[in-house]
Design a binder for these strands. Sequence first.
DNA 1: AGCTATTCGAGTACGATGTACGCAAGAGAG
DNA 2: CTCTCTTGCGTACATCGTACTCGAATAGCT
Lengths: 259, 259
Amino acid sequence: MSDTSNVSIWMRPEQVQRAGPGRRPGYSRAQITATAIRIADADGLDAATMRRIGQELGTGAMSLYRYVPKRDDLIDLMVDAVASEIELPDRPSGDWRADLSLVAHQTRAAGFRHPWQVTLARRPTLGPNSLRVYDFALSALDGFGLHIDAMTTLNSMVANYVDSAVRDEIGWLEHARHTGMDRSQWMTEYVGPYVNQVVASGKYPMFSRNIREGTLSHQPPDVRFQYGLDYVLNAIADALPGQPIHRAPDAGPTTPGGC
Amino acid sequence: MSDTSNVSIWMRPEQVQRAGPGRRPGYSRAQITATAIRIADADGLDAATMRRIGQELGTGAMSLYRYVPKRDDLIDLMVDAVASEIELPDRPSGDWRADLSLVAHQTRAAGFRHPWQVTLARRPTLGPNSLRVYDFALSALDGFGLHIDAMTTLNSMVANYVDSAVRDEIGWLEHARHTGMDRSQWMTEYVGPYVNQVVASGKYPMFSRNIREGTLSHQPPDVRFQYGLDYVLNAIADALPGQPIHRAPDAGPTTPGGC
DNA sequence: AGCTATTCGAGTACGATGTACGCAAGAGAG
DNA sequence: CTCTCTTGCGTACATCGTACTCGAATAGCT
């Protein structure tokens, strides 16, 4: 297992039951993954080093390589383990808006539980749990006569929104861990004076207007998230051929700032 | 300058003209940034180490710290330098669809020239060039009576799409650099067999259908990008109050797969 | 011109990382 | 027991960002 793996981690499943001679494994892939996630949750992904994981398991760093080919593969396992927390019914309910909304909120919640996850810029994870979520979301858009290409595109719009929204909400925390300053500190000390200077310069009217009149950044995170999600879901409603039933009651999303 | 900086890089501008005693600087922030970008373009962001940058400039690693507080700050400078390549008119044309499309395509092109840029998961860059692009895009959505919160949300939809689309197109290259395998190799050797196995398992019908019937991944990148972009821009058109003029001629985006 | 204050250039060094290598310890099969 | 295979893990190496330090260079003042 410690060889330079040339195939995806998903093609090298753990041999949980092995017959024949040789010492029995004292650890497991799931155990290592869980430990790594616990460390990353607490102290950030960078803290989940092979040494630290080994230490918390009561062993050395190199022992882990009997179970995981490379650290990158371990991160793949971690991402898919997070996806396993996303609770979904076996099949979509038939109300696509509710189904996609469920996926969005569940994904967001999982992102909050594991802040390190949104700081990753990775190729799509092909683990079983990630595939399960993907298939559920796409199924919700099935049956409207759309081409599969259209469905994947619309689904990507939701996924992209959730990704970037959670990243905006959380991306800080990792940054805060690096620099040791919390959000208010960042705002007031780090960029605050600069933002004021930018606004005062008058060179960027729309940016300034957003700083002055924008209410979104002062809203509770849940409200902010729902606000943008409604826009995306309405966009999908408009793209679906003749299904006005599942569109939101309002003509547009609720505007927190008042219109 | 080599102290632990506690304020944003944008608040510590380079003192290009300095009076008084002391040796004159032999390098410049722009020079260092340009060199770092050149290295990152050629060999990936990880290759742009302080040592390597110094070496290419004919100096040591530590000399750079006279100009840049930390490597993270240098990356901020690099990102904003990339944004400076995005060519835009001074003000929007009045055709919001054309304006946002221009920003999208220019951003994508810049992403292709600097593949390392899309692999970053960072807080928004507040450099002058990034602000310029941001202001242009928001201005294009101004004048429709929308609240600033709505404008930023719609603009984010475009930015999110471009980000993730370019990431999908390019994210590979960084991965390829790490593992040493190119795209076809990755497809056939790394995940190909696994994908076949997943499809054969029958557990993920929508994923399988996308593999079998999906045409998007076989389209030229430009077509694929435009396909998704049309969806996003149409979504914005639907969200704009009563401005059917700038909507796309077709009812929906062109479906490459034929419908 | 010479002195002084100040700034830049860069070598050395430290703690950290991922992980290749090699061997000892353990466990079923004969 | 002996053989064979697997796991556990200590050691070692290359590489990273960067703190510390001091000599070299330069402008203004006497």
